[in-house]
Amino acid sequence: MRRIISMLMENEPGALSRVVGLFSQRNYNINSLTVAPTDDVTLSRLTVTTIGDDRKIEQIIKHLNKLVDVVKLVDLTDGSHIERELMLIKVKVSGAQRAEVMRLADVFRGEIVDVTPTSYVVQLAGTSDKLDAFISALGDTSILEVARTGVSGISRADKVLSL
């Protein structure tokens, strides 16, 4: 099953490589990974999406918790949560396609953030599924480049990941 695991880690050199190293060393899968500062300068927040059966996920969580740099961790997929990913996608567009892609971006609540006579850059946020759906909806429109941020997420309601 797909999981979204979010953690607060010490803003120390080498911390990120320990997390990433753990995944490769134990043959765990990383689908996406994001890391950025938080409101607390001593901490960064890292979110990873991974796939595995329950035993594997339990091991991943235990091993992440063992890392000295990982201060606190949550499996967002354990409860209700909000998941978002941002995508910037550059497509080659001409003639009738221009209106078609614009309409499609609109349907997906995307924005066209760059326009040239031959291309658009569409910006789209949402779940990874939604971003995938947009890509397949583009059909035979030629995609020049895709830049996705990977998944970030947060629990709904009162549950918080903080110290």
Partner: peptide, 16 residues
């Protein structure tokens, strides 16, 4: 050294 030893240590430090 911090990188080479990473998979076989409990933790490591580079003195800054």
């Amino acid at each position: 050294m911090v990188g080479v030893s990473r998979p076989v240590v409990k933790h490591s430090f580079l003195v800054q």
